Simulated assay, not measured.
Amino acid sequence: MIYCVEDDDDIRELVLYTLRIAGFEVQGFSSSKPFWEMLSEAPLPELILLDIMLPEEDGLSILKRLRSFSAMKEIPVIMTTAKGTEFDKVNGLDLGADDYLVKPFGMMEMISRIKAVLRRTQASQSQEVALRLGQLTLNSRNHIVTVEGQRIDLTRKEFDLLFLLMRNPSRVFTRQELLDMVWGDDVLLETRTVDVHIGTLRTKLGTCGSYIQTVRGVGYRMEEAYDQKNL
């Protein structure tokens, strides 16, 4: 089941019609109220298409609430918007959106992105990876990260960034590689985005933040041993 939250009746009906033709079960909502009511009464959807510009409660607020509930935080969400600004993209992706569609988008592109997101999320949900580096641990199934036994809270992108670095210890990633692998090559962001997230991640990791090493002129790598001169 795919939920589509879109206040434009014409767009919503076209999306629902196309998805039904493609073999998906779908349900449409024009605002947040019936959407939340359905979530509380019916089985959770496999994916949500969520417009940013909505009456009553906007899409970013809905996404933030979704990611705050343990039962709903893993539902893949594709944001849709007519604005297409970098600010909206960064906000949506940092709050845990899995992909982005900028209106007007083609129906074939929409189906392709939905299938790609479903493949990624279903594959990740079927595998559990537990990683440990010094006093830092990460569990991919329940998205729990601990430092010296204390749990810390990370955004979706911070978690994905840490997971990639911990799964490839000592490997040097360029900023562009991290941007492509964590944010996706369809997202037009500057490599400065990586630096900002690395800085925030180091702060949240506390004593283990020094595991993330800066390789001057190249990018970043993760190792337990750390040389302060690399800062």
Rank of each mutant, 00 (worst) to 15 (best):
I52W: 01
L54M: 15
E57R: 14
E57S: 06
D58H: 13
D58Y: 09
G59P: 04
G59S: 12
L60E: 07
L60G: 08
L60R: 04
S61P: 08
I62S: 02
I62A: 12
L66P: 02
L66Y: 04
L66H: 00
R67A: 07
R67I: 10
R67G: 04
S68M: 10
F69D: 13
F69A: 13
S70Q: 13
S70D: 14
A71G: 11
K73D: 06
K73Q: 11
E74S: 14
I75W: 06
I75D: 06
I78W: 00
T81I: 10
A82S: 13
A82D: 07
A82V: 09
T85A: 11
T85W: 14
T85P: 11
E86A: 09
E86P: 09
F87L: 09
D88R: 02
G92W: 03
L93H: 03
D94I: 00
G96Y: 08
D98K: 12
D98A: 11
D99W: 04
L101Q: 00
P104G: 10
P104W: 13
F105Q: 07
A116Y: 06
A116L: 10
A116W: 02
A116T: 13
V117T: 02
L118A: 08
L118V: 06
R119G: 08
R120K: 15
R120C: 07
Q122N: 12
S124Y: 05
S124T: 15
S126H: 12
Q127G: 07
V129M: 14
T137R: 12
L138Y: 07
L138N: 01
N139F: 09
N139C: 09
N139L: 03
S140K: 03
N142F: 07
N142C: 08
H143M: 03
H143N: 08
I144P: 00
I144V: 15
V145T: 05
V145D: 00
V145H: 02
T146F: 02
V147K: 05
V147P: 04
E148V: 07
G149A: 10
R151L: 13
R151N: 10
R151H: 06
R156D: 00
